[in-house]
């Protein structure tokens, strides 16, 4: 277990350091790359607590798909972020106040928080070592939480449809290939044989 503890501190330290670098680095592309590294180390932390399935899904979904699109957009943006930061001093006091309030609230929660003794018995979490966590997640999601799970899926679907409706625009006069028409073409309709008389041209 000593090794797992050692790995925990490595993963946690890199995650926190990357999170700091996301906010502080001058180049937005570097920020996204640090964000990706932070995600990856968070996946490492998931593996350490025995949630391999969540770790892999985190890498597949966030690192492999979401962050790629993120990187994609940030690379295409031509925004001078140093220029944007010039007005930051005006907001630094408000930001500090909000941050301070949040920190105090978090500290109050962290010091007074305790798990009720009866909660341990009704916990829906998997018993470590009996079933694989993939199977236990499936058993919980598709039985006790099926309506919430389906509801989350519906919300995502609506969000996706909304995004497509908002961004999709039909432009007139764009030449597009219609595969069906192309496959339906035959040489009889398209090719005409012309007998060209010498000196007349076609």
């Amino acid at each position: 277990m000593a090794f797992a503890g050692f790995m925990f501190y490595i993963f946690a330290a890199i995650t926190v350091a990357c999170a700091v670098m996301v906010v502080t680095s001058r180049n937005p592309v570097h920020s996204v790359l640090y964000l990706i590294l932070a995600f990856f180390n968070a996946a490492g932390l998931f593996v350490l607590i025995g949630a391999e399935f969540l770790a892999m899904i985190l890498v597949v979904v966030y690192v492999g798909a979401v962050a790629v699109l993120f990187l994609f957009v940030v690379m295409m943006l031509d925004v001078n972020f140093v220029e944007l930061r010039k007005g930051v001093r005006n907001y630094v006091y408000i930001g500090a106040v909000i941050g301070g309030i949040l920190f105090v609230e978090l500290a109050m929660v962290a010091t007074s928080w305790s798990l009720g003794p009866e909660l341990a018995s009704i916990s829906l979490g998997p018993v470590v070592g009996e079933v694989h966590n993939t199977r236990s997640i499936g058993q919980v999601i598709y039985t006790d939480y099926i309506y919430l799970f389906q509801g989350a899926g519906m919300i995502l679907l609506v969000a996706m449809v909304g995004a497509i409706v908002l961004t999709h625009r039909q432009r007139a006069g764009v030449k597009k290939q219609v595969i069906r028409d192309q496959v339906a073409r035959s040489s009889k309709d398209e090719v005409t044989l012309v007998k060209v008389q010498p000196g007349d041209g076609a």
Partner: peptide
């Protein structure tokens, strides 16, 4: 590991970076 396929899928999705 018991999530071998997901591991392969995750690693191959990182290849784009």
């Amino acid at each position: 590991i018991n999530v071998g396929v997901l591991y392969l899928f995750a690693i191959s999705s990182l290849g784009v970076y």
